[in-house]
């Protein structure tokens, strides 16, 4: 990660950062993962067993890179003074826009990684697991904040699944961005706006709630 490594560069790069960086470089230069951990460790002038002190496999490295992207996004948001004042809807928008910015600076790697995920045809890829749980935790926080500010209406059964819906939304946007050919990924920006607005319009207080309430009332008064 450009930013994260830059921060630690002053002291001395942590071995984790070194491994991640070297791994990305290797992937992009060779178009495939190193043949074995042994070879890769040798390249880094590191003992194989030392590698296992940090990661148990290449997948572990890849997973850490995805989680780092999320961490970088969060830390950029936290540094932004206006972020705290945002409504939940705006917070989610800001998250996506920042996330896409971070993704952009790693686009080649992301393209490669997504390609790998698609080839494996796994619905819940292990590489994304760390990122997914971090994202869902963040989404849960947003949703409970939304309930306080009345932007999100608690509904039986489905409101517990909002974080899952948001995860699907994030994956949709990632896909959209990956295929986006417009200048500066402008179409993705529009997609983010529309997707987030639709989501909040659906989970906010709407005609549906009044309808259910009304139906319940009629039923009870029969």
């Amino acid at each position: 990660m450009e930013k994260t490594t830059a921060k630690t560069a002053k002291e001395k790069k942590s071995p984790e950062a070194q491994i991640k960086e070297a791994y990305i470089t290797y992937l992009l230069e060779h178009g495939q993962a190193p043949a074995s951990v042994f070879k890769f460790a040798k390249l880094l002038k590191m003992k194989e067993e030392d590698f296992y002190n940090y990661y148990n496999s290449f997948e572990g490295v890849e997973s850490a890179i995805w989680t780092d992207i999320f961490g970088e996004t969060k830390s950029r948001l936290d540094q932004d003074k206006t972020y705290i004042q945002y409504s939940v809807r705006e917070k989610l928008l800001a998250f996506y826009f920042t996330w896409l910015e971070v993704l952009k600076s790693n686009r080649s790697y992301i393209q490669y990684s997504l390609q790998q995920i698609k080839e494996k045809k796994s619905l819940d890829p292990t590489v994304l697991k760390g990122f997914k749980s971090a994202f869902k935790q963040y989404a849960e926080e947003l949703m409970s904040e939304g309930k306080e500010t009345d932007e999100v209406v608690a509904r039986p059964v489905i409101s517990d699944r909002y974080a899952d819906l948001l995860w699907m939304q994030a994956m949709f946007l990632l896909n959209f961005w990956q295929k986006d050919t417009s200048k500066g990924f402008e179409r993705t920006d529009a997609a983010v706006e529309k997707a987030v607005n639709l989501f909040f319009d659906l989970i906010g207080k709407s005609a549906l709630d009044s309808m259910l309430d009304f139906a319940k009332f009629i039923y009870q008064n029969k």
Binding site: F97, E101, E193
Partner: peptide, 20 residues
């Protein structure tokens, strides 16, 4: 209207700075 976060993003894209 456009959301404020997107306005911020547009600014950052062109001027590398937020509106404020």
């Amino acid at each position: 209207p456009l959301s404020y976060p997107l306005v911020v993003k547009t600014f950052q894209q062109y001027f590398k700075q937020a509106p404020l």
